[in-house]
Measured scan of single mutants.
Amino acid sequence: MDTYKLILNGKTLKGETTTEAVDAATAEKVFKHAANEHGVHGHWTYDPETKTFTVTE
Rank of each mutant, 00 (worst) to 15 (best):
A21L: 02
D47M: 05
V55T: 02
D23P: 00
E37L: 14
T19G: 03
P48A: 12
A27D: 00
K29W: 09
E16Q: 09
L6C: 11
T26Y: 08
A27T: 00
H33N: 13
T12S: 11
T18P: 01
K32T: 05
E57C: 08
I7F: 06
V55S: 01
D2Y: 14
E49Y: 11
Y46I: 01
E57V: 07
T50I: 06
T50G: 05
K32H: 09
D23C: 05
T26P: 01
T45Y: 08
K11T: 13
H41M: 11
D47W: 05
W44T: 01
A25C: 13
G10I: 09
Y46Q: 00
T3N: 05
H38R: 14
T56N: 08
A21T: 04
H41P: 03
T12C: 15
H38L: 15
F53I: 01
H38Y: 15
E49S: 13
T12G: 09
G39F: 09
E28R: 08
H33T: 12
W44R: 00
H38E: 09
A21R: 02
V30Y: 14
A25N: 08
V22I: 13
E49F: 12
E49K: 11
V55M: 04
K14Y: 14
T45K: 07
K29H: 10
T50R: 07
V40D: 02
W44D: 00
A24I: 08
A34D: 06
E28S: 06
A35D: 01
E20N: 10
L8I: 15
T3C: 12
V55W: 03
A24F: 13
V30I: 15
T3A: 05
K11Q: 11
T56R: 05
E57Q: 07
D23Y: 03
L13K: 09
M1A: 07
K11S: 11
D2H: 14
K5L: 07
K29D: 07
V22S: 11
A27M: 01
E16V: 12
G15H: 15
T52C: 05
G42L: 03
H43C: 13
K14T: 10
K29Q: 11
V55Y: 03
Y4N: 01
T56P: 01
N36I: 14
E37W: 09
V40M: 08
H43G: 06
G15Y: 15
G10D: 03
L8H: 03
T54L: 05
E28Q: 09
T17M: 15
Y4C: 03
M1L: 13
T50C: 05
N9D: 10
E49P: 08
Y46R: 00
A35S: 05
K32S: 05
G15M: 15
E16Y: 13
E28L: 15
I7T: 04
A21Y: 02
A27R: 00
K11N: 12
T52F: 03
H43T: 15
T56L: 05
T52E: 04
H33E: 13
A34T: 14
V40Q: 03
A35H: 03
E57A: 06
K14E: 05
K14Q: 12
W44L: 03
A25Q: 11
E49A: 13
A27L: 01
T45E: 11
F53T: 00
T19I: 15
H38T: 08
N9Q: 10
P48C: 06
G15S: 13
V22N: 09
V40C: 05
Y46P: 00
K32Q: 09
V40F: 12
G10C: 12
D47T: 06
H41A: 10
F31V: 01
D2L: 11
V55N: 02
E37K: 12
T52S: 04
V40R: 03
V22D: 07
V55L: 09
L8Y: 13
K29G: 08
G39T: 04
T54Y: 08
A21N: 02
E57S: 06
V55E: 00
K29R: 13
T17S: 10
T12F: 14
T26N: 08
P48H: 09
E57R: 03
T50N: 09
K32P: 00
L13C: 15
K14D: 05
A21K: 02
K11W: 12
Y46S: 00
G42P: 01
T18L: 08
A27Q: 01
E20F: 12
H33I: 14
K14F: 11
A21C: 08
K11H: 13
L6S: 01
K14L: 08
A27G: 01
F53S: 00
G39R: 06
A25H: 09
E37G: 08
H43I: 14
G15F: 15
T52M: 03
D2A: 13
D2M: 13
Y4H: 02
T45D: 11
V55H: 01
G10E: 03
E20T: 12
I7S: 03
Y4I: 01
P48D: 09
E16N: 05
K14V: 10
V30H: 11
T50S: 10
A27N: 01
